[in-house]
Design a protein around this nucleic acid. Sequence first.
DNA 1: CGTATGTCAGCTGTACTGACATGT
DNA 2: CACATGTCAGTACAGCTGACATAC
Lengths: 147, 147
Amino acid sequence: MGTTTSPSDSAVVTSREVRAVVGRLRRRLRSSSREGDLTPSESSVLARLADKGGVTVSELAAIEGVRHQSMTSVVNALVEAGLVDRSPDPGDGRRQLVALTTGGRQHVERGREARTEWLATRLRRACTEQERETVRAAMAILDRISS
Amino acid sequence: MGTTTSPSDSAVVTSREVRAVVGRLRRRLRSSSREGDLTPSESSVLARLADKGGVTVSELAAIEGVRHQSMTSVVNALVEAGLVDRSPDPGDGRRQLVALTTGGRQHVERGREARTEWLATRLRRACTEQERETVRAAMAILDRISS
DNA sequence: CGTATGTCAGCTGTACTGACATGT
DNA sequence: CACATGTCAGTACAGCTGACATAC
């Protein structure tokens, strides 16, 4: 081998690096996420709901970029944990509005105070502001081309 | 809410964006990976073996950053597909050396010719060279702080 | 009726831990 | 013996599709 794909192809090289880093980051983010016994998906949805409650499952699914069937099970777990609840939409009988319970709101606020998130800590301690800007710029690019 | 976490904390903001983009990219990379009926993990291991065969399961696990138990099942799938095989290490009876079969090698070479990888295509068509450089720089930073 | 919303069941892929066997 | 290597079993998480009910 060796010829494989021309290593000078910038797009291919970049793609490989992105794949490798995404894979590694994913494992790290998962393994170091002890944010109060919630799974990463659950934490993410909870944080969304803190910003904007009264949302439907389908809307949450669209925001997170997954199917509504997948979002149902995440919401179910949060309901069982007593952190969110569903209430019927008065104007549309098909809809169920999801919102934080009092306990859910407390959970979010406690988490936000106490959490020393692994990635944020690393970004703060091991990076310059310029490096963080580079990362944000790259995220914007990747977000654009992956939507 | 709205006040939530001080939005001026560059590390936290960057961390959130990285999380969001990693999640989305992961889903996209998975759903658009039809590289010949292999799962992403399998493809990745196969590509490694094309560069360097005669490797143990534990070494593969270390390279990919997973436990050896997890790597065992990936290798099992490739063995069952007839793409790799195990052979005893003559010098150490505990070890099993994993290498591509003829069919496995053919598979890799066919794949490398035919594959128009989703991410590489996007990076080529929707990005400038400067943007790709930004992405690569960011990957280097994230790789550094996640190791 | 078709469409949107939601739920449940079942499947796959990934990676984990624990238990165990075997060889150095 | 401790340690390295490897396998298997069980579990958890995340996402998918398909089937179905209900409401617009």
